[in-house]
Design a protein around this nucleic acid. Structure first.
Length: 324
DNA sequence: CCAGTGCCCTGCTCGC
DNA sequence: TGCGAGCAGGGCACTG
């Protein structure tokens, strides 16, 4: 499943190859991935034909292409979504859902492939943000005016931190309620800590709440909690500031490391990351390690069901809070 | 407004 | 070899 670092890798790939291209010949092969486009498939197609891509932006796991029509093509990869740039004569993927022809680029077409269809595409309106802009990594890349096919960025290069002007402080309507994400340079840690202290809920539930901080999924939540040595049910309002700062820093670090790894496989027209095999090489400390030894103390990692999903933690390093 | 629950989807794996 | 159960989980509708 693509997590935030994978989505960022996809964003960089799309930004490099799609800015300046014009969309034509849109083909929707399955209605479900377009279900969030409320005006229907015909309207979806009509709004994309002939528009030019001006930028590729991300917040959390939402990704969008800004269009010269003033709207945006918003994408969420869900659990199994992929955005691929491929030669038009390449055989269709088994789960190809939407095909978008591109003019003025490298002769490739954009394909949305999604087995489980939790994700999807929609053409949406942009509104002014109340928090100063899309933020996240990307925004308007510093080399946005270079046409598609620009030279590959140097390997090992750090995240390209986006800049945005007042003019670009627009965000797709469905993303407007999503908080800045963990890798956003403009994330206000003090504000976030204050909001966490006001919540009466468990720490993991708060980390997964996209209106507080976005981009943290089940895997990275467990990894961050393991690093911070905190149990997932620790009540947020009882955590002190140093502890809150620690868990947020750990969440950011785990994602930065994953992005650094995900970025190494990014070159040429390869804009997708295979999430499944990616986990294996990522050196996880908690997630998926039930019964295996904790990398700190050797205690067996436990798995518990929480919020209809699994939580992995070390019962010694991350003791359950009293009274829970 | 806030906290918490359940559902959407498909395909793979496991046990019998 | 068949087959059902369990599992994966982000986002959102919905309830209290």
């Amino acid at each position: 499943m693509p997590e935030l670092p994978e989505v960022e890798v996809v964003r960089r790939g799309l930004a490099r190859w799609m800015i300046g291209t014009t969309i034509d010949q849109v083909e929707v092969l399955h209605p479900r991935p377009v279900r969030r486009h409320e005006a229907g498939i015909d309207d979806f197609v009509a709004r994309l034909n002939g528009v030019t891509v001006t930028d590729v932006v991300r917040r959390g796991k939402f990704l969008w292409l800004t269009l010269d029509s003033g709207e945006a093509l918003m994408a969420h990869l869900g659990m199994s979504g992929q955005l691929l740039l491929e030669a038009p004569d390449a055989p269709d993927e088994k789960h190809l859902r939407v095909r978008l022809g591109l003019q003025g680029g490298t002769g490739r077409e954009l394909r949305f492939v999604d087995q489980r269809m939790f994700g999807g595409l929609a053409v949406v309106e942009m509104i002014k943000t109340t928090d100063g802009g899309p933020g996240g990594l990307g925004g308007v890349p510093d080399d946005a005016e270079i046409p598609p096919g620009r030279p590959e960025p140097a390997r090992g290069e750090g995240p390209v931190e986006g800049e945005y002007s007042a003019e670009e402080a627009l965000i797709p309507v469905p993303v407007a309620h999503i908080a800045r994400d963990a890798l956003d340079p403009a994330l206000d840690v003090d504000l976030l800590a204050a909001r966490l202290k006001r919540r009466e809920t468990g720490l993991k539930r708060a980390l997964l709440d996209q209106t507080l901080i976005s981009g943290i999924g089940n895997i990275y939540a467990d990894e961050a909690l393991w690093r911070a040595r905190l149990h997932y049910e620790r009540p947020t309002h009882k955590l002190n500031r140093p502890t809150l700062n620690r868990i947020l820093a750990d969440a950011q670090n785990v994602m930065r490391e994953a992005l650094a790894q995900g970025g190494t496989s990014f070159d040429s027209l390869y804009v997708d990351v295979n999430g499944q095999s990616g986990y294996f090489e990522r050196g996880l400390d908690a997630y998926g390690r039930e019964g295996e030894a904790c990398h700190r103390c050797g205690t067996q990692i436990r798995r518990e069901t929480f919020m209809n999903r699994s939580s992995f933690f070390c019962p010694k390093c991350q003791p359950k809070p009293r009274g829970s």
